[in-house]
Design a protein around this nucleic acid. Structure first.
Lengths: 192, 192
DNA sequence: CTGGCATGTCAACAGTTGTTGGCCTACACT
DNA sequence: AGTGTAGGCCAACAACTGTTGACATGCCAG
């Protein structure tokens, strides 16, 4: 009995999910190259060939594992004067909450070595960050402001979660919001 | 006849240098994992076993290839009011001039996947950036200010040279200095 | 000239990788 | 109950990896 033309629940859904979760962990910890299908399969407690069956190849698995929603849809509702502060706090939350943080770490760790990850990052920038910035301030100037925003937010993420520079790690979320929030605010509202 | 106890010029110096240059290129382009000794040797037009002979193993080659001077020694000479502007321009220069830029790109591309690169980055931060920041402003507060500085400068490098986000790539050096210089200035002179 | 030694080449090793095909098992439908 | 099929496991493949050792070459000191 076919329930629907698509999205039919499969008996293997649990396995698929286990693979995906293990993949996210491994990719986040090791990056695309270093994360092996064998290790992912071992974490998920299944056979490596299962990964191939369900996701085709390693690239397919990566694409499936890396899909993220930054939650920037309703940026327009934020009080304009508190944009920087609010966005910075939101960024820290997103970066410190699984599974989103694992996906972002995965992309960062892999972008270093793989065009796949760079492409995905650019897609996230174009499809989530740019539209959000478009909804505040001068639309024509949105790319420049979005670029500046990304340079600061990703810089914090890189130094705090990848390089783990001691002073950046030591700062609390409140401190980071207080220090960097104003920067974000200035970038978002600056004129060309 | 032994000329000296160390640093004697060797007949293989040219080969060693060729290996190092090829290694820098490959590491910068591919990161530590993806860059293979065979590829590096092919670029340098020598046998892979030569790499092993002169640098021990892949780790040794990486250590030898990744050694950088950010040129921050005389930061104290900069006019205090123009610190941010001057440092931002200096950073862009360093990141766009070989071979320093290649080394930094190498570290960034590899830090994603390898603890070696992270350790080297932390060393550069501790030995070059921290001392520089120590020489301006309150020494007790230097780590925090250096951390903020690094988060913004590395963020620009990451979005401009690794992710190549179009708006960040499109900006000229002058534009970046004008936009981001004030941020650096504020971070360097801020109070805790 | 002749020996030794640094330099370089060649081939092969052992391990790991992504990937594939064959086979067994157990569920779901008639 | 019987059967087709999806789910899962095992073993193996070919390619590639870092690394090693044996052998050739040519420079330089004696």
């Amino acid at each position: 009995m076919m329930l629907s033309q698509e999205e039919a629940p499969r008996r293997s859904d649990a396995t698929r999910a286990a693979i995906l979760e293990a993949a996210r962990h491994r990719f986040a910890a090791d990056g695309f190259q270093k994360a092996t299908i064998r290790a992912i399969a071992a974490d998920a407690d299944i056979d490596p060939s299962m990964v191939m069956r369900y996701y085709g190849n390693k690239d397919g698995l990566f694409d499936a594992a890396v899909d993220v929603d930054l939650g920037l849809a309703d940026i327009a509702d934020i009080e304009p004067g508190r944009l920087g502060e609010t966005l910075m706090r939101h960024a820290l939350t997103v970066w410190e909450r699984s599974p989103t943080s694992e996906i972002l770490l995965t992309l960062m760790r892999s972008s270093i070595t793989d065009d796949r990850a760079i492409a995905k990052f650019q897609e996230i920038f174009a499809r989530q960050i740019m539209p959000a910035v478009l909804s505040v301030g001068d639309p024509d100037d949105a790319p420049r402001r979005a670029g500046l925003l990304a340079s600061q937010v990703l810089g914090v993420a890189f130094t705090r979660y990848v390089l783990k520079l001691p002073p950046v790690v030591a700062m609390t979320a409140d401190q980071l919001v207080a220090e960097i929030g104003p920067t974000i605010q200035r970038y978002l509202t600056s004129r060309p």
